[in-house]
Design a protein around this nucleic acid. Sequence first.
DNA 1: TCCGTTATCCCGTATTCACGTGATACGCCT
DNA 2: AGGCGTATCACGTGAATACGGGATAACGGA
Lengths: 221, 221
Amino acid sequence: MSNTPPTRIVLIEDNQEYRDVIKLALAEVEDLELEEKFGTCEIALRYLQDLSNKRPDIILLDLRLPGMLGLEAIPFIKDYSPKTKIIVLTLSDSESDVLNAISLGASGYLLKSATLDEIVSGIRAVQNGAATLDPSVAHFLLQKLKKHIPQNALGIELSQRELEILTLLGEGLVKKEIADQLGIGYTTVDTHVRHIYEKLQVRNAPSAVGKAYKLGLFNDE
Amino acid sequence: MSNTPPTRIVLIEDNQEYRDVIKLALAEVEDLELEEKFGTCEIALRYLQDLSNKRPDIILLDLRLPGMLGLEAIPFIKDYSPKTKIIVLTLSDSESDVLNAISLGASGYLLKSATLDEIVSGIRAVQNGAATLDPSVAHFLLQKLKKHIPQNALGIELSQRELEILTLLGEGLVKKEIADQLGIGYTTVDTHVRHIYEKLQVRNAPSAVGKAYKLGLFNDE
DNA sequence: TCCGTTATCCCGTATTCACGTGATACGCCT
DNA sequence: AGGCGTATCACGTGAATACGGGATAACGGA
């Protein structure tokens, strides 16, 4: 236990009080080490950019900061210190903040209403390659996901070739170009397209592409 | 505190040992009450169907059960007791189990590696209208979501009319049908479509539909 | 006041599509 | 041995598309 190096943490948070709360909380945990804390992204990024500093394992990142916002800083953090995992720790439970943080690659999203225990176990989870989400954020994401998970198993299955051709169609190639690219004849492509229409029960290419997206036929790769 | 009724919990789990562990754990928590525990879905569903029984607030549901699988039971639970929230509690972290559980409307997904504290706080979160996810499940879902969140803000914006027409195109209508449905002329539709192609930088309808999905232009409604 | 965006409408044409109606061949399952 | 799905190829035709090149009108910002 004691020979594994502690998890190195950097806190970016402008509120002095909350900063101190976190500092005291982490000080009590043996294998977590609060390396630095910063009040703005600008200063934090300068620290990360300095090659003489060791890279932290985890960054706890507030979003509403004076100057550069936390979300804006994420790409720079990823750039300067690619291996550092980011846990957003903020008051905001706005949908767009959550979605942006995720698409920018955050490994966790906690609210400041979280207990210190939850923050510590969140850090441990992320350090182990997992993720941590505030329950209310998780609820929001589950609702979001429910809509985006296609229930594809309606017996509709395209062959590999058909999916290939449909993909190219959706990318803008005309049948002749698809034939050339696949090294097959035009009429073959035409036949495949007809089969696709039958299976998807559509009558033309735009709706075939649309239905394929709705059914999630493109999801798997 | 003590005048709020306890959260009523039902456990569906075939492993005798784990069932007892949960029973003992919940017995120690004041505001949680393990109402019943069942070894199979069939028996549990019979209990839920019996109108003389009170409906539980939470069901902890294992997936790998003798007879009917946990996932199969979810729609029946939703039917017999719509207000009951379901937390999946299983060994399986298979992607399809997670996705199926979510699309069937589970409010939580915990693994049996979870500590009893995590299970209790998960129950509390769900009872409060939030959700609970095992960190490794959360990680998987975040990765999944990252792909599905489009970064639409590339300056590409269709007018309302254009989006309307593109939607209908993706549903399989030909330009003439779109014109009739919108009560405008064929040439007007044609012009709109040209503008759509310009904005999306494509040359035909299938790729316009494809690109719209990729950019998430259909996401907002 | 002028320009950009949006929405509406028109003509003509070469290209492409959708589809009816075929064919051959391979593998798999029964 | 026969059937089913897949992949390949072919011809012809009417329908639809993509696009060049126009136009008018309303609205709002520069």
